[in-house]
Design a protein around this nucleic acid. Structure first.
Lengths: 209, 209
DNA sequence: ACTAGAATGTGTGCACCGCTCACATTAGAC
DNA sequence: GTCTAATGTGAGCGGTGCACACATTCTAGT
């Protein structure tokens, strides 16, 4: 681990990530430039290139951080949701995260993982992690349903709700209004797609109350 | 209407929109620069500024065009959907449009209408138009359901599916696979939220066959 | 038909950007 | 202690958004 000197920063990579995060939250993704990050980190304009070969790599790293935080946030909403209500709570947390970190959330989904750039590994891993997490939730909650189909539908619904709220298409005046909207939509989908399998689980002495 | 001369272009605004569209489809949103548009239109670098006060205004105009085309595309899928099946067909068309014009679709939803910029009027109008269109469809198809809630859920689901497909999270190998995925998800949501009211309409001698 | 003024296009220029390259400084392995 | 790789600096190139002064052309009022 390098030590901090007048010349060497000490942990420039972390400082760049922090600066990038701040710029993103303060002035949006347009303000997230390599040079601005360098300025904020108190370093020469090209120093960040030692840690991120190109701008896209930096935003990918920030996005990966966002994915990890999102996963953590969802886990805090409910560690192991089993009922539709608990799953709906996780969905509400998803939308809330998007509204609390709009620029970060947009950056996370602005561009797909481009095959040409090699530095998407961290980002891809973070995405895979959260994907598997959500998928596991659905699988645990509705073991008899087709997990792929149901998981896909649930994520799409929640993701779409997040974007519609972000774009100001829906009422975001109060957090409660948002939560209620998300809750009802998710519960509707779950009762439709997972209703049968949920009943099965209940009959077999499963976890549903 | 100005005539074309050696000096005056004739209809530079339309030429800029066309050039911007082409750049977007060819090389993605990063390639959509004012100067590149000017080059492609065969005009000096600052000429486009006579018609679009800033870059954001240009992409807003392109996005508005995209919204109009999307509305047209949905209308072609089914002019006045009344049954869940027909509505699902419109949903499939929505996702198809996103996959056929990925960069345009992303541009349409990349940034919300920023209050500071005054040139979002056209864009806002196009959005309002398509919103009212989808809303009208749902209202007509399910008059007894809460139109706002149902419309919101349907749009969110479809929009989320479009983005997940765009981001490579779902199987897009064949158009049929995409269509089937969208169909099942939408039908599931509709049977949950609108099932009762649809049955009512049918009993009263409505449009449902 | 003439002419004033509005519309529209040109050219220059500034600050910023991503990124490359040669070079300076330092940390850590031997 | 020395050698090398890691890390930071600085100059510089081409591109970009945008502001400004200027040129050309269209159009309306007479």
């Amino acid at each position: 681990m390098p030590r901090t000197t007048a010349y060497h920063h000490g942990d420039l990579r972390a400082a760049c990530l922090r600066a990038a995060r701040e710029l993103l939250e303060e002035d949006g993704s347009a303000a997230l430039s390599m040079r601005a990050v360098a300025r904020r980190a108190g370093v020469s304009p090209t120093a960040p290139y030692r840690h991120f070969p190109e701008r896209e790599a930096l935003v990918s790293a920030v996005a990966a951080e966002g994915y990890r935080e999102l996963a953590e946030h969802l886990g805090a909403a409910h560690p192991a949701p089993g009922t539709p209500d608990e799953l709906a709570a996780v969905a509400v947390a998803y939308v809330r995260f998007a509204l609390d970190h709009p620029a970060l959330f947009r950056a996370m989904f602005a561009e797909p993982c481009v095959p040409g750039t090699p530095d998407n590994s961290e980002r891809a891993a973070a995405i895979a992690a959260i994907t598997e997490y959500v998928r596991g939730i659905v699988r645990r909650a509705f073991p008899a349903a087709d997990p792929d189909a149901l998981w896909t539908a649930v994520w799409a619904l929640v993701h779409g709700l997040a974007f519609l709220h972000l774009d100001g298409k829906l009422d975001t005046s109060t957090p409660d209004a948002v939560a209620e909207q998300v809750r009802t939509a998710v519960l509707a989908l779950l009762t439709a797609t997972g209703g049968v399998s949920l009943a099965n689980v209940t009959r077999e002495g499963g976890f549903a109350r």
